[in-house]
Design a binder for these strands. Structure first.
Lengths: 176, 176
DNA sequence: CCGGTCGTTCAAATCAAAATGAACAAACAG
DNA sequence: CTGTTTGTTCATTTTGATTTGAACGACCGG
């Protein structure tokens, strides 16, 4: 059952076909996670686990991908927190073994809820404040461009609202 | 009509209120564009133009934001290409003057069509290739995990398709 | 034409994010 | 207990992206 020798750094493997598949998967997921601004290592690890027939321990991951123990540890921690990877225990082996969970929506939802939502909310508050200042400016100055700015901010608020409505729809659609 | 002295670097301005509004706008748009992975300067420039009563020439932008001529030039070029900023000519002035266009959908659509779509398409091709290799692997090896991997790739393809269906829907929804 | 302003380009400097790896803690085996 | 293996943390290094600024070309007014 011994896996490929992890000391051989990159991907010098048994069957060329298997190696290619792994490389492609890694590649695919690296570019996938990068869309969401996640570090490359996340994609590498997930890509490797995705095509692996059985769960892998951390040193296999380190060995096969040629990344550091630190990266692997941190990457796996994030992936677990996303629910994208689960650890499974293997009979006569003390080490934690990892397995890819195929739930794309978890990753995407995490992105929405952690990157987008907070920004949208923070944006809301700032828009309110801007509105306030703009109104004050309008009162104080005579004609000026103050009114024009006010109108713009209002338009922005409408967009903001649109965005906030759209997001949950998208999330819901992805979940089923 | 003379604007604020551009030599005074950051934002030491006439009315504190006006200054705050500008700062808030810059801030707002900086964090907005960063969601889409665009450089900060883009957000700064757009934020400034957004609250400016009249179109501004490049040196005003450089002066008020305290950024370099190079950044301003490049940033404005991108913003123009996005259709987020338009240049307008001002009577007795040779310089190009810039004005913010309030079309959020342009920016977002650009992001979708330029960052997401290409990746999705590239992803499609890679998934096809992976599928091919996995099928080959299945034929060659006896039982193995080859079948399991094949199933996973198929599931991924389904997700990929979902994504490709969702995007145009979102874009359409944003456009009106 | 000619001097000067305006704007772009690009190599080099700067900055922020990610990866590394050594030191450390926890879990276990004997 | 004690020595070993496994996994985490975090200061340092690396890497990639953005910003800078100087050099350049285009354009205009006189």
């Amino acid at each position: 059952m011994a896996r490929i020798d992890p000391s051989i750094t990159p991907a010098a493997e048994t069957a060329a076909a298997a190696g290619d598949l792994q490389a492609m998967s890694v590649d695919f997921f690296v570019s996938f996670v990068q869309v969401f601004g996640l570090p490359k290592s996340i994609g590498q690890i997930y890509g490797l686990l995705f095509v692996s027939a059985e769960p892998l321990p951390m040193d296999d991951i380190v060995g096969r991908l040629g990344i550091s123990k630190g990266s692997a540890s941190q990457g796996l921690a994030l992936l677990k927190s996303l629910g994208a990877v689960t650890s499974r225990s293997v009979p006569a082996d003390r080490r934690e073994h990892f397995e890819a969970d195929l739930n794309v929506s978890r990753i995407v939802t995490h992105f929405f809820e952690n990157r987008l939502q907070p920004r949208l909310e923070h944006g809301d508050r700032r828009l309110e404040e801007m509105m306030e200042l703009a109104r004050a400016a309008k009162r104080e100055t005579k004609g000026g461009g103050a009114t024009a700015v006010l109108t713009r901010i209002q338009a922005l608020q409408k967009w903001q609202k649109r965005g906030r409505n759209l997001l949950p729809m998208v999330v819901r659609w992805l979940k089923r």
